[in-house]
Nucleic acid binder design. Structure first.
Lengths: 250, 250
DNA sequence: TTCTGTCGTAGAACGGTGTTCGTGTCTACT
DNA sequence: AGTAGACACGAACACCGTTCTACGACAGAA
């Protein structure tokens, strides 16, 4: 029997794959021009997200793009959460993991974070799905493994390295999501209070005196591109790694 | 004329409040037991989120709790995004901002972050709304002002301080959202692959040899409570602040 | 007192979402 | 040739945010 979507999902999380037939599918596909495959679903979904954003990725929209009805998707995918996981998996699979080089471990870590960020931003809003993703997915685990290897090669203590991976991943996700949402707000600019830097400066200047520091350092608060802030924060965390004390327990 | 919800929202973002009558509302309220006020809406919404999570906060659910229909809410609130903003505003208003003390600026910053985290976790999932929130809300600006004052008192360079606030806020949001989502997954445990630490360890041990570091340091990777990781990351960032170089431009 | 205008309340409906049920339809094996 | 089973799909369910429209009660003016 061909694996049900549930079985595939379990396999992705390396639960008991147990029976799991050889999965050699014979092509039914009938009168269809192109049979619906999981891969076709994922590719089409990426296309939609890339062009219209993650919020546009609905089962109906996806089904329409595949020239079928919504229910047809559920033969290949457990539910939308499962689809998100598949997307995230393929996204992580694209990440290039360098061979750990102790001399440049910082650049290597920054490089991976930047790759992740760019992938997330290429498919706007998809990082939202990354928040809900379980940590036992094989593809995401592969990236973790790569980062862990680099940090360890860099001489970081295992416990510090393990937690740093969490911190970095979470921040990259959050950053990407925030930028995606900001871009979305900016694109549908029929709304008000999506403001340029000038407008923000003007508003800070107009604040009551209860906000002395904000008024005084408005320039600094609004300075830099978003990517500058990304580099700053990643640097902050990595620089902290050298001096981070080993957590008290374990 | 009483301010429309749109006007109130604009005022919250301190746009041109312009005309804006004295806002002395005469009590219509008619045969209702309790008239629907913005405050009542917010309080009820907080109650729902506290008990059932942010995803349960729908306009219909909220209206039902207020013993009315969905459309009645739109006389007081522009839309759901506006409601989110109101909730976030009240949440931020609860944050206690200490008088800056240069001797303990680190503890003070950590304290604010912890307060934010606890508030976010008290109302599970509400940090999702924080991602979409515009940065010009007065209540959120108040917290930023407080953090900025503390960092400046601690001798941090203005530009570094400004960006650090961004980093810290974003991380606290992300952390809270992740923990909330994890708890949600854990509560509806009818699903599989929500795993205990033991199960996670077992799974790491069963990984193929492509994951040598993950297998070797499985203990470290799964060590600590989530709050330990929070403290670790915040500490990482704050420790990095001392040594952070001023960004190259401006 | 009566009228009128205005504002909060609410029912019904619109277009959208994820998901499921039952039925068709075609392939591949016996 | 016949049959079993997997795939596809239309229709439907329950829910979402939001809007249209009518209704009803109060304030102030005549």
């Amino acid at each position: 029997m061909s694996p049900t979507p549930q079985e595939r999902r379990a396999a992705r999380h390396q639960l008991g794959t147990g029976s799991s037939a050889p999965a050699a599918r014979r092509g039914p596909s009938g009168g269809r021009k192109k049979p619906i495959t999981v891969d076709a679903i994922i590719s089409t979904a990426f296309g939609i997200v890339e062009e219209e954003g993650y919020e546009a990725l609905t089962m109906r929209r996806l089904a329409t793009a595949l020239e079928t009805g919504p229910s047809s998707l559920y033969a290949h995918v457990v539910n939308k959460e499962d689809l998100d996981e598949l997307l995230l998996g393929r996204l992580c699979a694209e990440i290039d993991l360098p061979e750990p080089d102790p001399a440049i471990w910082r650049q290597q870590i920054v490089g991976i974070c930047t790759q992740l960020r760019d992938q997330y931003l290429r498919y706007p809003g998809i990082s939202q799905a990354a928040f809900a993703a379980a940590p036992s997915n094989l593809d995401t685990l592969r990236v973790s493994e790569g980062m862990l290897a680099i940090l360890l090669a860099g001489g970081i203590a295992p416990q510090t390295a393990a937690w740093a991976i969490d911190s970095l991943s979470l921040y990259v996700n959050a950053y990407s999501l925030e930028v995606s949402l900001a871009n979305k707000r900016l694109s549908r600019s029929d709304d008000d209070w999506v403001v340029s830097r000038d407008e923000l400066l003007r508003r800070f200047a107009a604040l009551p005196d209860t906000f002395p520091q904000t008024k005084r350092y408005a320039a600094e608060l609004t300075a830099g591109t978003v990517h500058d802030r990304f580099d700053f924060t990643i640097g902050l965390m990595i620089d902290g790694l050298g001096v981070a004390e080993i957590p008290r327990e374990a």
